[in-house]
């Protein structure tokens, strides 16, 4: 069985939005401890990992199931959530559906078809990073917007104790520099200078679900995947994005 009650449907909507920016489908691995999912985007450039511990739910009861979901359909349903709605997720094993129930002034129920998406058994690779930066999401997203004006890819750099977001187009350049004492920076754990280049669209998708005051943990090295981690609604979201490397 699987039944979970979430006090704010809107918070769960953010989690689904975050995943659906990059993935078409997902397999929720539910167990008595909570829900987890790991998947690569269709082009295998990015990895999305989510962990929603049972403590994030108002009520939670489950044994082990793989619940395969079409994210586009789930996202459309979650878009129908109202501000004060509770969300109930409930597996109907007989009909092979996930019931998505909004409980507000009325009780509205959707039965979502399950897909045969087997769990990926992917693990987030255990990469050692020389640099770890905690930064307000709004500040980082703004720096990406600046970069977006000049090119479709961006360099994330650590240089002389500063965190730099740099883009260079055919004609124009943009650069945002964060020093350790910036109000936007919570902490910087700098080991060495580093530089990796990334596709901007992916970075924007990965950070879209974060509110501007949310804290992003960004891990970077040289020609290494960037790891971006944040919490929403009691869930942990981790994204890895492969770099562009000199061929």
């Amino acid at each position: 069985m699987f039944k979970a009650v979430i006090s704010e449907a809107k918070e769960f909507k953010k989690i689904i939005d975050a995943a659906s920016n990059l993935l078409d489908e997902i397999c929720f691995e539910v167990s008595e401890d909570g829900i987890k999912a790991r998947a690569m985007d269709p082009s295998h450039v990015a990895l999305v990992s989510m962990d929603i511990p049972k403590e994030a739910f108002e009520e939670y009861e489950a044994d082990v199931h793989d619940i395969g979901i079409d994210l586009e359909a789930f996202k459309k349903i979650m878009n129908r959530a109202k501000a004060k709605d509770k969300l109930i997720l409930e597996l109907d094993e007989e009909k092979n559906k996930l019931n998505v129930i909004f409980k507000g002034t009325a009780r509205r129920k959707f039965a979502l078809a399950l897909y045969d998406v087997s769990s990926s058994n992917l693990q987030v690779p255990d990469i050692e990073y020389p640099n770890e930066i905690l930064i307000k999401a709004g500040a980082f997203v703004d720096a990406l917007k600046d970069a977006d004006l000049v090119n479709d890819h961006v360099a994330l750099k650590v240089d002389d104790g500063k965190f730099i977001i740099y883009a260079k187009g055919d004609l124009n350049e943009s650069e945002t520099i964060f020093e350790e004492d910036s109000e936007d920076i919570i902490s910087m754990n700098i080991g060495e200078n580093a530089r990796s280049t990334f596709n901007l669209e992916y970075l924007k998708d990965m950070t879209k679900a974060a509110s501007s005051d949310d804290i992003l943990k960004i891990c970077i090295g040289t020609d290494m995947p960037v790891k971006i981690e944040y919490d929403i609604g009691g869930a942990n979201l981790t994204f890895l994005l492969a770099p562009r490397i000199e061929s």
Binding site: S43, H44, L240, A242, I245, S247
Partner: peptide, 12 residues
């Protein structure tokens, strides 16, 4: 020229 690599290249 830089080329996009796949994330699976980093799975060991």
């Amino acid at each position: 020229k830089k080329k996009q690599v796949k994330i699976s290249d980093f799975f060991k």
